[in-house]
């Protein structure tokens, strides 16, 4: 576990130094929000309509940003074959997976926390229930990342590379996106945590199941 943290810290240090991924993720999410803002500019200010649109807009931008983050998560390890260097360390591959997962979740979470106020400003919309929202976003991101990283490890071996990732990822994260969108909608409409228990439970189950399975299967993606 400690070693997973070392890997995560190493990843975050690298990322904050180069800011390659952070920059493109932030700019990209800004653009997504702006495009939605333009296409829905007629209804901006109409609280009820925005409330209907908000969950979808937010999670579309999160899902897009996640594909960027996830598709690049192994690029540092592939360069100079650092992944082999990690495999030469006395840790099991599950710990490597956990480490990469922690750092990817952190990065995405940072970007998502920037998207929320941005959305609020662009759509003149006051967001309520922020703590619940943060919880939903965290669980949703964890769900997307825990299966996404495994798929990313698959796609780095393929001819089409990162292009393939969304094709594989989106069908599999439907069970994350749906409860996340529903619960976000409920919270924005003024619901409380007890209204979204079912959704949170499903998200939690998804995270646990796919974390366990991906951790086991990750070994097979990097073996030769």
């Amino acid at each position: 576990m400690l070693k997973s943290f070392h890997i995560a810290i190493k990843d975050l240090r690298t990322e904050f130094r180069t800011k390659q991924m952070l920059n493109s993720m932030i700019v990209f999410s800004l653009i997504v929000i702006v495009i939605f803002g333009i296409s829905f500019s007629d209804v901006a200010g109409d609280m009820e309509v925005i409330e209907q649109l908000a969950p979808g807009i937010l999670w579309i931008s999160f899902a897009f940003v996640a594909t960027i983050g996830i598709s690049r998560s192994f690029s540092d390890e592939i360069k100079n074959r650092c992944i082999d260097g990690l495999r030469m360390c006395p840790v099991d591959t599950g710990a490597i997976y956990t480490g990469k997962m922690l750092s990817t979740i952190m990065l995405l979470f940072i970007v998502e926390m920037l998207v929320i106020p941005l959305f609020s400003v662009m759509f003149n919309y006051t967001i309520q229930g922020v703590p619940e929202l943060v919880l939903i976003i965290f669980l949703g991101t964890a769900g997307i990342v825990c299966v996404g990283l495994l798929l990313s490890a698959i796609t780095i071996n393929s001819r089409s590379g990162e292009l393939l990732l969304p094709v594989l990822l989106f069908p599999l994260i439907i069970p994350v996106i749906i409860p996340a969108v529903i619960s976000t909608g409920k919270i924005l409409a003024g619901g409380s945590i007890s209204d979204i228990i079912d959704e949170l439970r499903l998200l939690g189950v998804y995270v646990i199941i796919f974390y366990v399975i991906s951790r086991i299967l990750f070994e097979y993606t990097i073996q030769e």
Partner: peptide
């Protein structure tokens, strides 16, 4: 070999995601 191994991985996670999809869609 690689194609067989990696698609086997996808075959496993893909199958497991389906019942979860059903649950989430029902919720929706």
């Amino acid at each position: 070999d690689k194609s067989a191994r990696l698609s086997a991985i996808f075959g496993i996670v893909g199958f497991i995601s389906v019942p979860l999809s059903f649950l989430s869609i029902r919720l929706w």
